[in-house]
């Protein structure tokens, strides 16, 4: 239906020719922005209702004193449903470790929460289909679980800033919301998130549409294709400064895959965009000493590069 609408506007109303550069670009733009907008509205709303049942206080209690493996797996899963903003990474981290959540388990949460987020999942689903979205979710969880276990095994508690261990943390009551309150929360959450990400979607789809219409096929095969081993680490490195703009980045990347960028490289790039960010590193340096911060980044980056190579081989 959206396809018909896009065809109608571009070809019947605007009088552009199917197959022409401008026609294809505009058609692509209209179709993708409408589709993504609808997906965002629906899924963010559903996720927000689920989220309203998992305030960080509850997640903290569930994870407190959990053992390795079980704790890491639960932390990675709870990372999807617990609302998290990197601006509250510090109080969250302190709250977790102070209430007895093991360090490795805390990291599984901190890695999964920004990486496996609904905006990235919707964008991947809308642009690449549900299979790629599912692969992203499962490998994202795996990266979070494995990285958390490795950090836990390294016994790096002494590389957490000393004051963290001495802090007095109060406990906050968990307020049960009524169903109506949850709906209101979900409505506000959806509206705020849409306002934040939709401009990036429009810009991203716009650039994607331009690439789709104007850049020659196979343009990127040489640089970003399967056979270039450097492509994955370069994509990960490029992803770090593009912090949390999954909404704007995915449409561009989608257009680039059509020009020859390999899918494993795409997944690695997306994970780097969401999970590794410089602002978050700066915030976390308030609670982590340099060695732990570098270890954290190093392990996550390595796992992501590995995921990229793996999917370039099997997909």
């Amino acid at each position: 239906m959206i396809k018909q609408l896009a065809d109608y506007v571009t070809f019947a109303q605007m009088g552009l020719k199917p197959g022409s550069h401008s026609g294809e670009a505009l058609n692509f733009f209209i179709y993708d922005t409408i589709k993504i907008f609808l997906l965002l509205c629906a899924i963010i709303f559903v996720v927000a209702i689920i989220r309203s049942s998992f305030p960080p206080e509850r997640t903290k209690r569930i994870l407190s004193h959990k053992r390795e493996y079980v704790g890491n797996i639960m932390a990675a899963l709870l990372g999807i449903v617990t609302p998290f903003c990197s601006c509250s990474a510090v109080p969250l981290f302190i709250g977790f470790v102070e209430s007895g959540v093991p360090l490795g388990v805390t990291f599984s949460f901190l890695i999964s929460s920004p990486m496996v987020n609904e905006v990235a999942i919707i964008m991947l689903w809308g642009m690449f289909g549900w299979k790629i979205a599912l692969i992203y979710i499962s490998t994202g969880l795996l990266v979070a679980i494995v990285s958390g276990i490795v950090i836990g095994r390294l016994k790096m508690e002494k590389h957490v800033q000393d004051y963290v261990w001495e802090m007095q943390v109060g406990s906050q009551e968990i307020v049960e919301l009524t169903f109506k309150a949850k709906l209101i929360y979900a409505r506000d959450y959806t509206r705020d998130l849409l306002k934040k990400v939709f401009p990036y979607v429009v810009v991203g789809v716009g650039i994607g549409a331009f690439i789709h219409g104007y850049i020659p096929q196979d343009f990127l095969v040489k640089w970003a294709g399967k056979d270039n081993p450097i492509a994955v680490p370069v994509a990960v490195a490029l992803g770090v400064p593009l912090y949390s703009n999954a909404a704007g980045v995915i449409p561009i990347v989608k257009a680039l895959t059509a020009k020859g960028m390999a899918i494993g490289t795409v997944l690695a790039f997306m994970m780097a965009v969401t999970a590794l960010s410089l602002p978050e590193a700066v915030i976390l340096s308030n609670v982590l000493k340099r060695r732990l911060l570098i270890t954290f980044f190093g392990i996550v980056a390595t796992s992501i590069v590995f995921v990229g190579y793996l999917f370039n081989i099997i997909l």
């Binding site: 960080p56 109080p91 969250l92 709250g95 007095q168």
Partner: peptide
């Protein structure tokens, strides 16, 4: 942290 607040 004294108030136990984990999300600001």
């Amino acid at each position: 942290m004294k108030y136990g607040v984990m999300s600001t």
